[in-house]
Design a protein around this nucleic acid. Sequence first.
DNA 1: GTTCATTTGTCCGTATGTATT
DNA 2: AAATACATACGGACAAATGAA
Lengths: 240, 240
Amino acid sequence: MELSVPRYLQVKHGLERQIAQGTLRTGAFIPSEHELQAQFKVSRTTVRRAVELLVDDGVLTIIRGRGTIVAPTRLTHKVTDLMSFTELMRRQGLEPAAIGLRVERRRPAEDVAVRLGLGPGEEAYEVFRVRTADGAPISINVSFLPTHAVEVTGLAGLSREQSLYKVLAEDCFIEVSATEDTIQAVKATRAQAATLSVRSGDPLLLIERMAYTRDGSLIEFSRIHIRGDRYKHTIALRRR
Amino acid sequence: MELSVPRYLQVKHGLERQIAQGTLRTGAFIPSEHELQAQFKVSRTTVRRAVELLVDDGVLTIIRGRGTIVAPTRLTHKVTDLMSFTELMRRQGLEPAAIGLRVERRRPAEDVAVRLGLGPGEEAYEVFRVRTADGAPISINVSFLPTHAVEVTGLAGLSREQSLYKVLAEDCFIEVSATEDTIQAVKATRAQAATLSVRSGDPLLLIERMAYTRDGSLIEFSRIHIRGDRYKHTIALRRR
DNA sequence: GTTCATTTGTCCGTATGTATT
DNA sequence: AAATACATACGGACAAATGAA
């Protein structure tokens, strides 16, 4: 039995391959929908679906009445894709690692409890880590997870796998489907400065993230303090 | 002749209205696609298109085999929507204004010229502004626009309208359709500190933005230095 | 455990409208 | 004016997931 990949994805991948190989060149028109139907032996509906996805990805641009071209501008990473910290680091060409992993179960500070929507006295898991890139400390990461959403045993995988989201997906079967990041510039406290090998008062990027599952329930609140001089956070947005 | 709004948008707006009015409640199932067909007197294709758009907006969540619910979690702003600085400020409940508008035409610094893709000696328009919120200076904004992309006369509207993107759209008929932001934490220089009423060395958020039109050509490169203590930058992402 | 109705996912063929050349 | 290409819309068919009988 074969694993059936939807036709529209097959067409999408086919087009992506042709673009990667240079068969379809940047700025040039791709075959019309009619021609693509013949080429891939699918209906127009299916062709349009594949093209639509590539337009959303910023790979293709449709010019009504004329045709569809391979978008001349290629944003550095796929638009609006949700990315874990690990992925973000790799984009910068840095090899990410984590040290000083510590998992605790306790009542978090009140502002965190409010964000997690915890009842009075309710506890949460706190995951502490210091992330490094090419060996140098680059960020201090604290994640808070509601105890009712995840088992502590499920978090054991963190010792071998750096990505919290991967562990949640593979060991807890929890898929993070949406995030909301708030980004600020703050001064490094003395403790943070020591950990990150910078001077006290130096600028840090503070990213606070709320992560949600597909059904909309909160799965994680995290705070990441990042060295301002070693890291750039990139976001691509697209108007529909 | 009537201005024809596509049926799928009519359905989308109909559903949005029902959600806003509370006819469809958060967390509850909306009518099945079959029922929506009957309700709006359209085909299933059209119903599905409308629902798909609302899912992308984070308003609805589809549970396969069961139905579609009104998403319990409402992210603070529409996911992946591209927003101008003016819009972003209003979200924070602040009244934005701009002072010290200055437009110059000249050869920009080399790193900027490279980003704009300028040929040797080619010039660009530089738009300087200091943005305020509720009267207090909050950011220093410098925009660079290629001279071949926009007329200087078109930028005259900036004196009455704060939003560069609105002026580009209304006076130059240029629509910004995608942006790529890079965010860093930096130390305020002495000049920046003076302008923003902070201390030299205090943390600032530096947002560098590349803005593109629909056909993929670069229309703007901008640098925004923002007071770290007065501003939070929020981004919502969604995995497809 | 199996069957069955319901609901969403994929796919097709066709028809008509609108924009561009 | 005509041809081409994308946009919208319909109706039907079967597959896959879910939950209940």
